[in-house]
Every structure is written in structure tokens, then in C-alpha cells.
Design a protein around this nucleic acid. Structure first.
Lengths: 324, 324
DNA sequence: GTGAAAGCGCTAACAG
DNA sequence: CTGTTAGCGCTTTCAC
């Protein structure tokens, strides 16, 4: 069995120079039809695949894009990543995936890894390490849902409006003792803060009291369960809850059912997954597909130096999906 | 702003040769403590990151692993990919992700892409294109849940037993008019076939009739809904259903509730996601974490030529999780 | 302990 | 239209 064929092997078999093969491969320069056929035949025969690593080394582009997210397993990130990868692959970019699990050390080493692998850019949805570290990378970066610095583009959905819509929906359903559970996944996460602010503002505007609880370990469902459980048991007057993500909302929902309480809930994210599993859940839907598209567009523009504007902050509208 | 520093820049700054820097980087050969310090300082100062692309070009290993799956967005694959990436990253492998969406053309071009990028191996959970194409790759490959050929290692969970367990559970719940809905995602998929066989065997053994329905477009929930809907309406005597994945089971569950039918259902996969969203769903749990671990272990063994056995087919046990 | 030189597989001048 | 040559950033013989 022969080793991996190289361009030179193709050249020999086709009886031409390496340059010619390269030209056929890249459709550059003028090639006679005959030569082209010969070369293509040789390529077929040898089952030759150009070594992208070598190509990358030469040029300055690898067509690698790094994706840094807390977890591919989470439905929101999973679907976002799915969309991003789809769009990128159409444009012939390849995706290197990184699951930080909200761990600073992992994030830092992933960042190093991506830089070492000469990614052309990255899309980042997880941020524990300092902003400056990303700054220093001097690389096209698009952040999701988190302002990292003045110079890094951000794509997010309208978290403030989302918070407002959730609260308003609960009020519309005749609820007034409404609490908010905020499953923060990062310190100073603006998305959590804005959702909360939206909710609190609406409550205030209606002259109602508000109460926000924060859950700090979003990856452990047991912790969530305990907190939600004691929450519910402590206060029998609660009649509405706004949960900052659907997974937490799902847990709350099943607890409420088990306790036979009359509490209306609103979740957040509106992934297809949750929509399928829990069609009865009312939730604020993030425009995942649009966020992916925009993030990719902006990133590729930065990569290709096509700044068509100075705008750095993109906020996409959210919608309310009423449970069935 | 300086360009990306290269090894040569470090060498200059440290007043040594490139060779020496390389040695420091790789901990190879003998280096004086002083030189090592100088070099390390220079590396720090320049914020130097060795170019992995160049390294890969030289050596024959890239430490890239390609993952080919139908969709990162699907909870089963999303969680499996999450686990696989985690384990691989600990071993300093990097993951290139591919979403085929069950499209032959995408799968083929992803395979080409991975080969061109000199991946050291791949883990494949999607298979529409011919086996021979993977064979030709002459690369360490581990397949998930699908026998691809005599020479490609397969990791799967015990689909036959899973099918049996599902049927037995329904019988145990006093059901007898039990149907099976099989959401096949690929032709001749052995996992679907085995689950079905397990169910049918149990029914036969109990002298009961069985009926299996197949849904062919697993990515469109609307299609599923229509089929399930007409299924339920056609036959009012059904009292048990075995659905071959949890997402389909979730749809069935909400339909059954809406119709107020007394039908017990059993799903398949048992992802954390679905467990959280639908704790009441009884399901057959695949050992995702163990499958990921085994697949990675086997792949790395193949990559490092450490065949410790000739076994090619690994079947991990599934468990039943009763809904709460 | 350290350095000079060759080469990994490919592409892009520059010739012809 | 096609080939020769140099070099992308790194590692590794082989010398000193």
C-alpha cells in the first residue's frame, strides 16, 4: 500500500511538473485541456487529496475558525453551534470546537490552542478569562452575548426586551407575585443582567415588588432543583416565575406540577429542542439562526477586511412563544 | 504593531539559534539553564505561540480528530460530541466538527475535507455514503452505532437489548397493544433495526401482535407530528408505544396528553437534556459518557498502533430509566 | 551545549 | 502553456 500521495507523485504520474499540478488544483493560469485531463486522471488514480496543512503554511490563511462555548451539549449552544458550523462550512471554513465548561483554565488553554493553530478568527460565547487576553490575540473575533471590549464585535439578542416581555406576559396572565430566577453562568454577564433588569423595570412600572434569585452553578441540575424547591416551599403566594433559561424552567415546571401549584412560568431561549420536548412551555425565543448568520457575516467581514461600518454592537429582536 | 512572531524572532531576541529555541520548546536535548531562561523570557516578551501548522507539516501528526455526525444540535449527538471533545482535549487532540444533516453530499465533502486536513483519525456517527469511501481513507476510524466494514471498529450500545427492555417495560405496565415507531435516520441502520427486532421478539415471545411504523425524515418535527397524529387517531386501542428516540417520544407524549389517551410510552436515548426537560418520560438510556470514552480510547490506540486485541465490535449495556 | 543546513508539501514569482 | 527556484515556520540530523 502506497503512502499518502503528494503533489509530486501526481506530477510524476501525469508526467508534468509540480507547478502544473498546483495550477490545475487551483484553477490558476492557463492549462491545456490535455494536461488538465492527465493531471486529473492521476489525481483520481492516486486518490490524491491536497495537503491543506501545507497550503495553510504557505498562505496566511488556514480557513479554520475557532468556536469557544461553554458546552456543545447545552441545547442553546448546541443549536447555535450547529447553525454556525453550517453557515461556515458553506463558505469553506472549518470549525474547531472548544467546550470550556465555564472553566477559566480550559478557556485560556483553548485560546492558546486556537492561536497556535492559526485560526483565521473565532466566535466566542464563553468568557471567564480577562478581556485583555482576547484583545492581545489581535485576531478577528465576534462575541456572542457579551461585550468584551470596545474593539470586539458583539452579537446578542435583546435581553432587556426579553426580560420585559417575560414579565409583561406574566402580568397579562393575571399574575402579580412574580419572581425571577437567574441562572448566571458568568460574572458580570450582561445578558443575565439585562434580562433581570427588564423584568425588574416592568414590575416597578406596575408598582409591584420584584425578587430575583441567582443560581450560580448552572451545570448541576441537582443544585438547581434544591434551590427551586426551597424557593417554592418558602413562599406559597408565588403565582408567576420568570426563569432565565428553558432548562431551569423545565425543572420548575415539573416541580410546580408535582406540587399542584398554580404558577405560570416563562422560560428563555426557545430552542427547537425544548419546543419539541415541552411545547406547553411559554418562553422568550432567541433568534438563534439569525444570530449565527450575523456572527458569521461579521466575522468573515473582519477576516476579509471589509469593514462596512464601525458598528460593534448588534442586538437582534426576541419573540414570545406561548406554550400550547 | 509587530506581526506574529516566529521562532526565528524568539531566537534573535534570545541571542541563540532557532534550533535551540525549538529544543527548549520541545524539551529535547540538553540545554543550559541560562539559555532556557533566556529563551523562555523571549517567548514571554513576544507572546510567542509556536505555529502548530508548521509543526504538523513537519511531523506526520496533526493531532486533529474529525467528528462526523448528523447534527450537533440533536441532544444525543450534542452530548456525545461534548463528551468526546472533552476527553480528546485532555489528550491534547483538537476536534474538527462536521454536521452532515444526513446529506450524502455533505458527508462526502466533509470526509474529503478531513482527509485534506490530515486528521489523525475520525469518529463517525453518520453514514450515508458508501463504506468503501471510508475504507479507502486508510485512516484510524471508529464508528458509532454502525458497522461500516470488517475493518472499522464499532462502538455501540446494546440496541437489541434496548428494544427488548422497552417492550418488556410496557408489558410489565400491563400494556398489550403496543406499537413501535422507528425514526430511522439511515438506510440499513443496524441500531434501528436491532431496537425494532428486540421489540418484535419480545412481543412474539408473549404471543402478542406487533406493529412497527417508520418515519423517514427525522429532522422535520412536522412530519413526525402528522404521522404520530394519524397513528393515534387511526387506532384507539393502542395502549403502549415504544419510540426509538426521546424527541419523537416527547411529541407523542404531548399528543397523548392532549387527547387524554391512556397510553404508556417508552423513549430512547436518555440524554441529560431530555431527562431534565421531561423527567416523567420513561426511556432507554444509552451510556453516552462510556461510549465516548471507549470510542476515544480505541481511536487513540489505533492511531498509536497499540492494538491490544482484534476485537472490532464493542457493545455497551443500556439501562431503563423510569419516568418520575 | 549549540548551530547550519536540509526538508515536511505546497504555491508563487520569474523565466522560457 | 509549462518548468525552475525559493520559501512558508518548524524540526531534526549531523557537525562542532
Amino acid at each position: 500500500m502506497p503512502e499518502k500521495p503528494k503533489l509530486e507523485d501526481v506530477a510524476k504520474l501525469a508526467g508534468v511538473s509540480p507547478t502544473t499540478v498546483s495550477r490545475v488544483l487551483n484553477n490558476r493560469g492557463a492549462i491545456s485541456e490535455r494536461t488538465r485531463r492527465n493531471v486529473n486522471n492521476a489525481i483520481q488514480q492516486l486518490n490524491y487529496h491536497p495537503n491543506e496543512i501545507a497550503r495553510s503554511l504557505f498562505g496566511s490563511k488556514t480557513h479554520f475558525i475557532g468556536l469557544i462555548f461553554p458546552s456543545t451539549g447545552h441545547p442553546f449552544f448546541g443549536e447555535l453551534i450547529f447553525q454556525i458550523e453550517n453557515i461556515l462550512s458553506e463558505k469553506h471554513y472549518k470549525v474547531l470546537i472548544c467546550n470550556t465548561m465555564d472553566q477559566t483554565e480550559k478557556e485560556r488553554s483553548y485560546l492558546d490552542m486556537l492561536l497556535s493553530n492559526q485560526v483565521d478568527g473565532m466566535i466566542v460565547g464563553a468568557h471567564n478569562i480577562g478581556i485583555d487576553i482576547y484583545q492581545r490575540a489581535k485576531l478577528p473575533i465576534v462575541a456572542i452575548d457579551r461585550k468584551m471590549s470596545e474593539t470586539i464585535t458583539v452579537v446578542s439578542s435583546d435581553n432587556y426586551q426579553g426580560g420585559r416581555m417575560a414579565a409583561e406576559e406574566l402580568l397579562r396572565q393575571g399574575r402579580s407575585k412574580i419572581i425571577h430566577v437567574n441562572s448566571i453562568r458568568q460574572k458580570e454577564a450582561p445578558s443575565s443582567y439585562l434580562r433581570r433588569k427588564g423584568y425588574e423595570d416592568v414590575m416597578t412600572e406596575h408598582g409591584l415588588p420584584f425578587k430575583t434569585y441567582e443560581i450560580e452553578s448552572p451545570f448541576d441540575p441537582e443544585v438547581k432543583k434544591q434551590i427551586l424547591s426551597s424557593l417554592l416551599d418558602q413562599d406559597p403566594t408565588i403565582d408567576g416565575m420568570f426563569l432565565s433559561d428553558d432548562l431551569t424552567a423545565a425543572i420548575a415546571l415539573s416541580m410546580i406540577r408535582k406540587r399542584n401549584r398554580d404558577i405560570q412560568i416563562v422560560g428563555y431561549d426557545g430552542t427547537e429542542m425544548v419546543t419539541t420536548c415541552l411545547p406547553e412551555l411559554t418562553t422568550i425565543v432567541q433568534p438563534i439562526r439569525a444570530m449565527a448568520q450575523l456572527a458569521v457575516d461579521l466575522l468573515l467581514k473582519e477576516i476579509n477586511n471589509e469593514f462596512d461600518g464601525i458598528k460593534k454592537n448588534y442586538i437582534l429582536p426576541v419573540t414570545l412563544r406561548r406554550g400550547t
